Computed example of a mutant assay.
Amino acid sequence: MSSDATSSDSSLDPHNDAAAAQADDGSTGQMVEDVESTAAELDADGASRGTLRDVANSLGISSAVALRALRGADEIKPRMVERVREAAERLHFPLEELSGETEHRGVVAVLVNTMRNTWISDLVRSIRIELAATGRTAVVVPTRRRLPEYPVAVDTDAIENLVHLGVDGFLMVSDLADMDEVLEATGNRPLVGIGCSKELVGRIDTVRIDDEVGQGLLVDHLVSLGHREIAHVGGVGAAVARERADAFRAAMARHGLADSARVEPGDFTEQVGQTAGSMLLRGSQVPTAVTCANDVTAVGVLSAAREAGYDVPEAFAVAGYGNTSLASSGVAELTSVDPNSERLGALAAQMLVDRVSGHEGPFRDVAVAPSLVARRTTAAGPRPETTRRKRISVD
């Protein structure tokens, strides 16, 4: 069991007095306007209530300061306490769920397929911030178990042990293998899926990435640069991968490029991404650009391009998905889709707390709209076919 989710986090530092003082700067009018703007955005998204992060962002303060203000901490100025509580009420934040600073009523388990995906750390941070308001914490639990007779299986024993230990509930990042077994292992504990596939809608509470919008943003971006021969690496290994591949095809068809919408099979790993990239680049019809199922896959494609002698982005543009630290690193500078991990994690944590607190009713589903972050790997349009391959002279 990993305890990544309980590591130190400056955004939850209870001694962040400087931030509290800075936040109380007298700009009441702007704060009111920002709170109303946030409320309008929540209404547009169909959200019944805001998260702790929504309250903090609407006032231009950290989540730590917002939480301390809601708890009535002595070091927070009375005027700031008043503003935070007013914002919380306006955004329908559940003040009745607020706990005292020293109360820790339970632990939430975050179930993941792997610890190698850096997207998970972004999600866990936002989950922790939201859970902190109710005195809860989170632990991250890898669930993938490899058996000789099966390539991938879920470790239901670990999930059942968590139930016996008395966890409040479960947050599941992406689809796990053997979902029927997962649902049985969690027993009567609430389970909320984050970044999962449409296949789970109606079976559990779900907070998904709107992949139709995400892949559409990538294709729109590449087409605007002049690309027409665009491929996608993905579609294998999980329902989410298939849905992203379908969203890519739909986006290409919207531009009248359905005949050029090639999907090279790949999962979410760098190794398979590199193999798929090599297949694309050694074919008779090489695309000028490629979108990928995630950032890790895109890094593999970049490696294949380098080995094949293709300049990126002049000869071959590459885009990822997830906007992880891999994408933003100075080495990759990878164009990627930002799934709004902060909102995904906060909404999922909120849904779980609702269920733990006794909320009943149909399972809910929220699709969070992502955004595009353009970087160096798609900074140029396609070259003519005759000049795309980098010539390497051999003496």
Rank of each mutant, 00 (worst) to 15 (best):
A261H: 05
A261Y: 06
R262P: 04
V263G: 06
V263M: 04
V263H: 04
E264F: 00
E264W: 00
P265C: 01
P265Y: 08
G266W: 12
G266H: 10
D267Q: 08
F268Y: 15
F268E: 13
F268V: 03
F268S: 14
T269C: 07
E270R: 15
Q271T: 11
Q271F: 12
Q271Y: 13
V272R: 15
G273P: 13
G273H: 13
G273F: 11
Q274T: 10
Q274P: 03
Q274N: 12
T275Y: 09
T275C: 09
T275P: 01
T275W: 08
A276L: 09
A276C: 10
G277W: 07
G277V: 01
G277L: 09
G277S: 04
S278N: 14
S278D: 15
M279P: 00
L280H: 07
L280Y: 06
L280N: 08
L280P: 08
R282T: 11
R282M: 09
R282C: 00
G283S: 14
S284G: 13
S284V: 01
Q285A: 12
Q285S: 14
Q285R: 15
P287G: 03
T288L: 07
T288K: 07
T288M: 06
A289F: 05
A289E: 10
A289C: 04
A289P: 04
A289N: 05
A289G: 00
A289R: 02
V290A: 12
V290Y: 06
T291H: 07
C292M: 11
C292A: 11
A293F: 10
A293S: 14
A293D: 15
A293H: 12
D295W: 09
D295Y: 06
D295C: 06
D295I: 00
V296A: 09
V296W: 00
T297I: 04
T297N: 09
A298G: 03
A298L: 08
A298R: 06
G300W: 11
G300N: 11
G300D: 14
G300A: 04
G300E: 14
G300R: 08
V301K: 05
V301G: 03
L302K: 01
L302F: 01
S303R: 15
S303Y: 10
S303D: 15
A304I: 02
A304N: 06
A305L: 06
R306W: 04
E307H: 05
E307Q: 12
E307W: 00
A308W: 01
A308K: 01
A308G: 00
G309Q: 11
G309S: 06
V312F: 04
V312Y: 05
V312N: 08
P313I: 10
P313Y: 12
P313F: 11
E314A: 15
A315F: 04
A315S: 15
F316G: 00
F316H: 05
A317M: 12
V318L: 06
V318F: 03
